[in-house]
């Protein structure tokens, strides 16, 4: 369970003080598929990075699976991300000089993670990119890149997937496929928090949270 308690995140941009998240309270249960929507600058991505322990809130707290995220050390938060979180981004964020397989096996550099090539091939086959594993990102289509990113996010069997507009660069066919895999992850007991602009994901989600100027406008 994720419990967000009165989270505020503000920072200085030039001479202005910007409040990206303004005293947000939100609880996400295990195995929920939550969509976070809102216009640009509403704080959607900030919320996701705070949930991932990558951005420390100015005030408030987050409890994930009974642990106060920001009372953990930087190293412990890194372990939290490695073990419990899978990130999927709009621009895939694959290392350009590694092929798809090495991008996924990169996780083996983390402590206590041992992924075999066979495991990668198994999931890649399911996502339809088995034959593309030894290609560099520059040789892959947008849909293939996002599926590689999905394999990377799911292979460590995290409990939560944080997806930042994962379908933003994809055509409808690929969008549906990505949503399908996220849904499958949720069906298997995982929690999905996905930031999106579009409506294609609505039918997959259990709940939608609308953000406006850093505040939750309504929860549906």
């Amino acid at each position: 369970m994720i419990s967000i308690q009165k989270i505020t995140k503000s920072y200085t941009a030039g001479q202005n003080q910007v409040t990206a998240l303004d005293s947000i309270d939100l609880t996400i249960a295990i195995s929920e598929f939550v969509l976070v929507k809102g216009e640009s600058g509403s704080g959607k991505s900030t919320l996701l990075f705070v949930l991932g322990g990558m951005l420390k809130p100015s005030s408030g707290g987050i409890v994930v699976n009974k642990r106060d995220l920001f009372s953990l050390s930087e190293k412990e938060r890194a372990i939290y991300r490695a073990k419990e979180i899978g990130f999927v981004f709009q621009s895939y964020h694959l290392l350009p000089y590694l092929n798809a397989m090495d991008n996924i096996l990169l996780l083996n550099k983390l402590d206590n993670i041992a992924i075999s090539k066979e495991e990668v091939i198994l999931i890649a086959e399911e996502l339809g990119i088995k034959d593309r594993l030894y290609h560099k990102p520059s040789e892959l289509s947008a849909g293939e890149k996002q599926r590689v990113a999905l394999v990377r996010a799911m292979i460590t069997k995290p409990s939560i997937i944080l997806a930042d507009e994962p379908t933003g660069n994809l055509d409808e066919k690929n969008t549906v496929e990505v949503l399908h895999y996220l849904k499958k992850f949720q069906d298997n007991g995982g929690t999905v928090v996905m930031v999106t602009h579009g409506n294609l994901a609505d039918s997959y989600a259990t709940r939608t949270v609308n953000l406006h100027k850093g505040k939750i406008k309504n929860k549906s």
């Binding site: 991932g52 990558m54 930087e74 190293k75 890194a78 372990i79 939290y80 991300r81 490695a82 073990k83 979180i85 990130f87 981004f89 964020h93 694959l94 290392l95 990169l106 996780l107 550099k109 983390l110 990377r152």
Partner: peptide
């Protein structure tokens, strides 16, 4: 940034 997101420590 990618590595930090994946759980790599500093």
């Amino acid at each position: 940034g990618i590595m930090r997101a994946l759980g790599f420590s500093a």
